[in-house]
């Protein structure tokens, strides 16, 4: 049995080595502030697209109102977080500020979509879906402006 114990303790040492390896990797993964913003933008773009799809599907009677509401709530939470991180970013202002603008517009659109769905305001929801679609395109343009990573 003692053989197994020594096996297990060497396994434990192996795990320690993995953790060190992970820490080193994480340290090497240092990104420029612009790169970090670009990663953030992917998550923001994903939520914008989700909100747009939720709005369109709600208009097509494919999803219930409660789903639109909870999706908007989740999106709002993540977008708030993204906004906070973008505000703290060390990136150049001419890169950072347009993104902050986009995020705050997305937050507003999400909130309006939620109100429109709750009030069963179909034209309002359609308007917000259109606005989100435009925001998604603007985000793409912003990403392209930043150039390939």
């Amino acid at each position: 049995m003692r053989n197994f114990f020594s096996l297990q303790s060497s396994a434990a040492r192996g795990c320690g080595a993995i953790l060190v390896f992970a820490a080193v990797l994480a340290a090497c993964q240092h990104k420029s502030p612009e790169q970090e913003l670009l990663d953030k933008a992917d998550a923001v773009g994903s939520w914008i697209a989700t909100l747009q799809m939720a709005g369109e599907k709600w208009l097509a009677n494919s999803v219930p109102t409660s789903f639109v509401k909870s999706t908007c709530k989740e999106a709002g939470r993540d977008l708030d977080q993204a906004a906070g991180e973008a505000a703290k970013s060390q990136a150049r202002p001419e890169v950072r500020d347009p993104l902050r603008q986009l995020i705050s517009q997305a937050q507003a659109a999400g909130a309006s979509l939620r109100r429109a769905a709750a009030a069963n305001d179909r034209p309002g929801a359609a308007r917000e879906a259109g606005r989100l679609s435009a925001l998604g395109r603007q985000l793409e343009v912003w990403k392209q402006g930043l150039g390939p990573p």
Partner: peptide, 25 residues
């Protein structure tokens, strides 16, 4: 194609609504 990444189950929940508009959800 819509640019949706799944970081939350809400983002996956509409997956079937294109194929089954009424029952998908």
């Amino acid at each position: 194609p819509r640019g949706i990444e799944v970081n939350d189950y809400h983002q996956a929940a509409m997956m079937l609504t294109d194929a089954f508009p009424f029952w998908g959800f």
